[in-house]
Design a protein around this nucleic acid. Structure first.
Length: 855
DNA sequence: ATAGGGTTAG
């Protein structure tokens, strides 16, 4: 097993993997040395892609129809829904396609195949189907043929024909045991089709008819409930079978464990079932362990690793399911370097990664923000001769969209088309979000129209996405229109849609209204999640303290009021009106430039109430929550107010609180070791989460005058590469930083440059400080960061000025900066102090030759 | 009886 502290493997190097693999030179490149796993994987994949195995070497070859070998069943039987574009792959995986056929269970007669061919014409309705059945009745032989038919009908989604077939077969079957077989098959088929009520109906009838009390029907029903996420029901059936005196077998146990895994049941609970299994003398097999692994998806990656080891000790071989599930667990906790190692290990053990393996790991990289690494995995995959499927295409599409590489994104769409994979709702949603986030609203409109034209029906995610992109762009009229359409489609709103609406309110400073809407959604039975809460917490103080933000987005447009009024008149539905009112409120509120001063006080109470609700609903906070609390503290006018919020932080997390509190109160020396370990841990998260935390912590320190502390935090962030290439001698890039972090960083950078000058080096001709447009503000063109930096530079007399060509860039001649840095008073200006310092800190800070920069 | 995907917070 790979070690728990894997070496860091970079796979971002520019040259393509297959170039490494095909390199015949004995010279080892640096990249090869850094990528032992990658190379190893390639060498073994190359073997299977060799000319002796041409079928594996080209993705197109994989899709060649099986004309060469005559199929037992004609054409449509084995046609994957992938090609007909009817079902998602997720659904396909639930069907029987990949099932190994044991010679016993599926020994059906050729007549059954024949019947299937004749009855599968699109024009055959249920009645005609029954007539056909009667015609074949004499020649179809017993339950084996009928079970085969039921499964095949299930695969085609022919639910009602399956019902006809089942009734027909049961009525004509005299043996109880054979009827029992039919029943368990039918329950399984209905379960796979997601029709759990029908499954239950069949089960109950079978039990009442005296042929349903078998381990098989119970197991099938447990599985049916499991697939629908109804874990409690599954466990109920499991217990019921025991009270009926039936002894659960391996399949029963596996089914109930799988049900728990799908529903996200706690590991301890499932472990009890596992122990129960052992004590009843049922030996776990590979599938048991694979399902137990799936239970670890909640983040128990160490437990997952342990399970795999235990499998080995029990002499159970790991298969591709084992590794794919394990990888999923590892990827979900973001341990991508470990995932990379495990992938190499599976190859070494001759368990070859497949399309699921790759899409799991690719998704892990993408979620960790390592988009280039994700793209490199695609190359590796193609090189290994593994054809992309729908899931993979959608993953690659969304990566290109995230990178803003629209040309590549459209190429992915074309490639999908040429492979015969139709764009599904996931594809379209990705396109809508991708274009929308870049403000390409024309394209959004076109894509939305197109998807409806080709009858890919928008779902809740589609509407949430659209409402979100329009709201973020301030296009409330369009957002309102989308919401109207959403209601017309008769879909039920979910937590994400509501969170989007709440966010729209928050971004406009309407925190109290946001809290009201939160109560609304709770009343409607929609459970808010941590994102919903983080949104509101982070918005604290925006209305009272940041009115200029409201002004900035205002732009003088108030025409929304009339839009709202006419919209509200047309619809009487209460929820509809409420949301319409929200959009209206957004428009109206924008015209208010002044707010009550005591509003911030009210808001504080409002937020404190919010924390109560969070505890009550047992919503677990995350790092973003901590960042949000720190940001809220930054908007408090007094340390007293802030300390009320910090107390809430205390309830959530001792360590984060300890560090924040210690730095704020000047006990830096005593807390610094803990701070460093916290920083290390934060760095394990993806870069945007990490930088947001650093930004928040720095801001609150800066806000309360702990500027030296803020600077030290920022430098730790820089050392851990949180903001990516922050500085060189000629350029300081602040565009990912908050205003406090950016200011602390400017001081540090100038001191660094000063030491360059004092060492006698010449500065570059031109120096730049980039602020972008202030990513932190999230308001396009807002430039809050730019203003903060401008004020600061002016304040210390630095000779930088705005570049005329780029409004987010400050420049200065190197000679001017050199002269300024050499002036006698400059050093004093650049050294930051904390307003609060414990004696030991003061001693350190006042050493005259203190170099603040660990360069 | 087992594996992978899309929306929301910073």
């Amino acid at each position: 097993m790979a070690s728990s502290t894997p070496p860091h493997c970079s796979i971002t190097a520019p040259s393509k993997p297959h170039q490494i693999a095909s390199s015949s030179s004995s010279h080892k490149t640096l990249q090869q040395q850094q990528q032992p796993h990658l190379q190893r994987r390639f060498t073994s994949q190359k073997v299977c892609a060799s000319p002796r195995n041409p079928a594996n070497s080209l993705s197109k070859a994989n899709k060649a129809p099986n004309f060469l070998s005559p199929l037992p069943t004609p054409n449509k039987t084995h046609l994957s829904p992938d090609f007909s574009g009817k079902k998602s792959t997720r659904f396909v995986s639930k069907l029987h396609f990949n099932r190994q056929r044991s010679s016993l269970s599926t020994r059906h007669s050729p007549v059954a195949e024949d019947f299937l061919t004749q009855s599968s014409a699109a024009t055959v309705d249920d009645d005609q189907f029954q007539v056909l059945l009667m015609g074949f009745q004499a020649r179809l032989s017993g339950s084996e043929d009928f079970c085969f038919l039921l499964r095949e009908l299930g695969n085609r989604g022919e639910s009602s024909k399956a019902v006809v077939c089942y009734d027909f077969a049961v009525q004509r079957e005299s043996k109880m045991s054979e009827r029992g077989k039919l029943a368990s098959t039918m329950i399984s088929v209905m379960g796979r089709l997601g029709n759990v009520d029908s499954a239950r109906f069949v089960f109950d009838n079978a039990v009442n008819g005296g042929f349903g009390n078998t381990v098989y029907t119970y197991s099938a029903l447990i599985s049916a409930y499991g697939r629908s996420g109804l874990c409690q029901e599954a466990i109920g059936v499991f217990q019921m079978m025991k009270t009926q005196g039936l002894r659960p077998n391996l399949v029963s146990y596996n089914a109930v464990i799988d049900a728990c895994a799908k529903a996200g049941v706690k590991f301890e609970v499932v472990n009890d079932i596992y122990d129960d299994m052992l004590s009843n003398g049922v030996d776990p097999d590979r599938i048991t362990f694979n399902s137990m692994l799936a239970v670890c998806k909640g983040g128990l990656w160490k437990e997952a690793m342990r399970l795999v080891t235990e499998m080995g000790m029990r002499g159970i071989d790991q298969d591709v399911f084992t590794y794919n599930t394990l990888l999923d667990v590892i990827c979900k906790v973001g341990k991508m370097d470990l995932a990379f190692d495990i992938m190499s290990e599976m190859t070494a053990k001759n368990v070859m990664p497949n399309v699921v393996t790759y899409s799991t790991v690719i998704d892990g990289f993408a979620k960790a923000g390592r988009l280039e690494d994700a793209l490199a995995m695609f190359e590796e995959m193609k090189c290994a001769g593994i054809a992309l499927d729908r899931v993979c295409y959608n993953a690659s599409l969304s990566i290109f969209l995230k990178l803003g590489r629209f040309k590549d994104a459209l190429n992915v769409c074309k490639e999908m088309e040429s492979c015969g994979i139709r764009k599904d709702v996931v594809t379209y949603n990705a396109l809508l979000g991708g274009f929308g986030k870049q403000g390409k609203y024309d394209e959004v409109r076109q894509v939305f129209e197109q998807m409806k034209n080709v009858r890919v029906f928008p779902n809740v995610l589609t509407y949430s996405t659209l409402i979100d992109v329009y709201s973020k762009g301030g296009l409330y009229r369009e957002a309102m229109e989308v919401f109207r359409e959403f209601k017309k489609a008769g879909l039920k709103a979910d937590v994400v849609l509501y969170s989007g609406l709440i966010d729209a309110l928050c971004k406009n400073g309407l925190v109290k209204s946001a809290v009201l809407l939160l109560d609304e959604m709770t009343k409607e039975g929609i459970r808010p999640n941590v994102v919903t809460y983080n949104t509101i917490i982070d918005a604290f103080g925006r209305s009272a303290g940041m009115d200029y933000l409201v002004d900035a987005i205002n732009g003088g447009k108030t025409s929304m009021v009339s839009t709202y009024n006419s919209a509200a008149r047309n619809h009487e539905g209460s929820e509809h009106n409420r949301v319409m009112k929200i959009f209206g409120q957004l428009a109206i509120e924008k015209s208010h430039n002044f707010r009550e001063f005591n509003e911030s006080r009210q808001e504080l109470l409002c937020i404190l109430g919010l924390f109560q609700k969070m505890h009550k609903l047992e919503i677990k906070p995350n790092v973003v929550t901590f960042s949000a609390i720190l940001n809220a503290c930054s908007r408090c006018n007094s340390l007293e107010d802030a300390s009320m919020l910090l107390e809430e932080l205390h309830l959530f997390d001792d360590r984060v609180y300890g560090v924040a509190h210690g730095l704020l109160t000047g006990s830096r020396d005593t807390i610094w070791i803990q701070a460093l370990s916290l920083f290390d841990e934060v760095k394990q998260l993806d870069t945007s989460t990490a930088s947001a935390f650093y930004n928040a912590l720095t801001d609150v320190l800066w806000h309360f005058g702990q500027k030296r502390g803020a600077q030290l935090v920022v430098l730790e962030g820089k050392n851990r590469n949180v903001w990516e290439n922050v500085w060189s001698t000629s350029c300081l890039d602040l565009h990912l930083m908050s205003s406090g972090a950016a200011r602390a960083m400017v001081y540090a950078w100038l001191l660094n440059i000063r030491s360059v000058v004092l060492e006698g080096h010449e500065l570059p001709k031109l120096l730049s400080i980039l602020t972008g447009w202030g990513k932190h503000s999230k308001v396009v063109g807002d430039g809050a960061l730019k203003r903060a930096i401008e004020g600061m530079l002016n304040g210390i007399g630095a000779p930088f000025h705005l570049a005329e060509t780029n409004l987010g860039r400050f420049i200065s001649q190197g000679t001017a900066v050199t002269a300024w840095l050499k002036k006698s008073g400059t050093l004093q200006v650049l050294l930051l102090q904390d307003v609060k310092t414990q004696p030991e800190n003061r001693r350190l800070d006042q050493r005259p030759n203190l170099q603040p920069l660990p360069l």
